[in-house]
Amino acid sequence: MTLGAVAVFCGSSLGNDPAYAAAAALTGRTLAERGIDVVYGGGHVGLMGTVADAALAAGGRVVGVIPRSLHDRELTHTGVTDLHVVETMHERKAVMADHSDAFLALPGGAGTLEEIAEQWTWAQLTIHDKRSGFLDVLGFWQPMRQMLDSMIEAGFVKESQRDIVAIDGDLDRLLEVLASPPRWTDKWAAQVKR
């Protein structure tokens, strides 16, 4: 499968280590250089703004999707290729999902985690068949790797659905995985109807 567009979820802050911003810039630049559109939250601040700026500087196409409440606070990146101002956060995630072939989380806070978790859930339920990846900068996502292992061990996530999520510190390797065909099945496929 060829990736035409990747939704990038990441912090609206820069974090406290320059490595986070460097990874965001590398992500934007790499996607642009590969001809992959960046779909993101539409802001000019934090890691999200860094991703967008780097992609644009490399000649890439950047699609921003921002809720009106944030747009009205003047947080919108006005230089993106295509901007969607939507009414709610729910609509934002749906539009981003519709415009993307895969999802990539860089370091971030609760919003980043919530956004990537929803796409992971939608893949489990076969609402879509798109992969989710976590770019593990400075070991940031290692607790998520441990959490995934715990979810599988405790019987809340099927081993057969582990492939929905990839966690890697190497962007090139991660993009290869995100472009690979899905191999998981519907979470409920083997359940007996009652």
Rank of each mutant, 00 (worst) to 15 (best):
L175D: 03
E114H: 14
D168Q: 02
W141F: 09
R173I: 00
F103N: 11
E33F: 04
K158D: 01
Q146I: 07
Q142K: 10
G79N: 10
P107R: 07
D172F: 06
G60L: 04
W188S: 15
P67D: 06
A22M: 06
G133V: 02
V192F: 06
M48V: 08
R183E: 04
T126V: 14
R162W: 05
H44S: 01
Y20I: 05
W141Y: 07
T112H: 09
D149E: 11
A94V: 15
I152N: 04
L75S: 02
R92N: 12
R68A: 14
H84I: 13
V6E: 05
A110I: 15
D72C: 12
T78I: 13
I152H: 03
K187P: 09
T126Y: 08
F140H: 12
G11A: 05
H44P: 01
I116K: 10
T76W: 12
A55C: 07
E153T: 13
M48E: 01
R183Y: 02
L135D: 07
A190W: 06
L3E: 11
T27D: 03
V45E: 00
Q146N: 07
T50G: 02
K193L: 12
P18W: 01
G109R: 06
R73W: 09
R194A: 13
A97M: 15
L104T: 12
A166F: 02
D168C: 06
S13R: 04
G64S: 08
G169C: 07
H90I: 13
A5I: 05
E87Q: 15
T50K: 02
D170T: 03
A7M: 08
V95Y: 06
I116E: 03
N16E: 10
L31M: 03
W184N: 11
Y20N: 06
T2V: 03
L3G: 11
A105V: 10
A32R: 01
V8G: 01
P18A: 12
D37H: 05
G79P: 00
R34G: 00
A54D: 00
A110S: 15
A23S: 09
L104P: 09
A5H: 09
G109W: 02
H77A: 01
L148S: 08
A25L: 10
L148M: 11
G60R: 02
A105T: 11
A52I: 11
G41M: 06
E176Q: 08
D163F: 04
L113V: 14
I167H: 05
A32V: 12
A102L: 08
G59V: 12
A21F: 00
D168A: 05
V6H: 05
L148V: 13
R145Y: 01
L178V: 04
L31H: 00
D82A: 11
V157F: 02
R131H: 13
L135A: 08
R73Y: 09
W141S: 03
Q146M: 05
G42H: 03
H90Q: 15
D163E: 08
S12F: 02
G133H: 04
V137C: 08
L178H: 07
V85C: 09
D136F: 00
L178T: 03
A23N: 04
T121R: 15
E159M: 10
G28W: 02
G133N: 08
